[in-house]
């Protein structure tokens, strides 16, 4: 019995060891299958490596409201990450909720980078998508489906955008609860820090911004909206 336990433990240690090291450090032939480690025992210990975080990434969201004449009025960008950072700045033990959109912006950029050039071009032109005629998931899927891209890439992009629009919808409805939200879009702002060599320079490099396109606001979930509204009011 003891020997059997020892053998299982030794195998687990070997699998964890090879999974925890960077792929280049052990030959592929010596790496046992490690799929069973996922997700509970996932080994990803990059921890600010290889390249440490070197920019502030923010999620911006923008509303399009119905105006008094029945038209559409585009509102100002709202920095959701800045709201979240209120629970991190000058806190010895920061709020866990303060990192949600920081992580989300990584996913958004990753999904965007995973699209084919044709798909990115189709989304950039945003054929027919305006604040007055925003896209729904079906429309975006249609824009992406022209190119010959794997389905999982398309779905990954759609799921990430879909999640972002839910958050954006609830944040914007919190800020102006009495207005009718017609369309929503997000942007990812990337603001690099000064390079080490330029650390004494007066200003940081200019931020870049990648805009998404206008989406139909997300379906309402009263519990979700109430929890997000509560958070936004306390940290705005």
């Amino acid at each position: 019995m003891v020997l059997l336990v020892g053998a299982v433990v030794a195998w687990h240690l070997l699998v964890v060891t090879t999974a925890a090291l960077p792929p280049e450090s052990t030959p592929q032939a010596l790496r046992p299958p490690s799929g069973h480690l996922l997700p509970f025992f996932r080994q990803d210990w990059r921890l600010f490596a290889p390249n440490p975080v070197a920019s502030d990434r923010s999620l911006l969201v923008q509303p399009a409201w119905r105006d008094e004449e029945g038209g559409v009025e585009v509102g100002e960008w709202v920095d959701v990450t800045d709201i979240e950072l209120d629970s991190v700045r000058q806190h010895l033990v920061g709020g866990r909720g303060g990192y949600g959109t920081n992580r989300l912006t990584f996913s958004l950029d990753q999904q965007w980078a995973g699209l084919l050039a044709d798909q990115q071009a189709a989304l950039r032109t945003q054929a027919g998508v305006t604040p007055e005629a925003p896209a729904d998931r079906e429309k975006v899927d249609e824009l992406l489906s022209g190119a010959d891209a794997p389905e999982y890439v398309r779905n990954g992009f759609l799921d990430t955008d879909d999640a972002t629009i839910r958050l954006a919808t609830d944040v914007l409805r919190t800020l102006e609860p009495d207005r009718e939200l017609v369309a929503v879009r997000y942007a990812v702002e990337n603001h690099p820090v000064r390079r080490w060599e330029d650390r004494d320079a007066e200003a940081r490099p200019e931020p870049t911004q990648r805009d998404g396109f206008w989406w139909v606001p997300a379906e309402d979930d009263p519990d979700r909206r109430a929890a997000i509204a509560d958070y936004v009011r306390r940290h705005q």
Partner: peptide, 11 residues
């Protein structure tokens, strides 16, 4: 609520 509760349902 925002971090782990109903508010996290946006994800």
């Amino acid at each position: 609520g925002y971090t782990w509760g109903a508010g996290a349902r946006w994800g």
